[in-house]
Amino acid sequence: MSLRSLTRLANLGRPFTFNNLLTSSFIKNVNNEIRSPLASSILCRYISDSLKKTLDETVQKNDVVLFMKGTPEIPQCGFSRAVVQIFQAQGVDLSKVKTLNVLEDHELREGVKEYSQWPTVPQVYIKGEFIGGCDIMLNMHQSGDLEELLLKQGLVASDEELEKEE
């Protein structure tokens, strides 16, 4: 049976929309067996135009955006917690970090993966640019690249500036 006829079967009696197609438990089962280029191109259409616009604005308007599970105070996932701790270690003012809890919003949780072309959460954006997830943040933290980037973008004060303040 072709994927198309299967899809048709699954959507009998339902208005045809991409969301319907994706939320049906059927397509999830099918995913185990059929991962055709078509299936992934359908998945790419998951994110709605309005969500994409919201995310564009969020990422552009805020210096640092962190998509995470839970909140900085109560992270619900070890990887999200690690990213928050890296920001703290770097001296980034957490009140200036825009955090979005993907556990509160299912559309956001799935949409942000599509938006960033990145299958996992947490995700970090700095000055509108996608930086990566927990591994990359940790890697950049250890190599010194993160400090360099944060200094360049004026998100943390340099040692000289700190001395001046004192």
Binding site: Q117, W118, P119, T120, F130, I131, G132, G133, D135, I136, N139, M140
Partner: peptide, 9 residues
């Protein structure tokens, strides 16, 4: 790093 991770994903 991003490209490497994306490649694996």
């Amino acid at each position: 790093l991003i490209q490497r991770h994306r490649l694996i994903y």
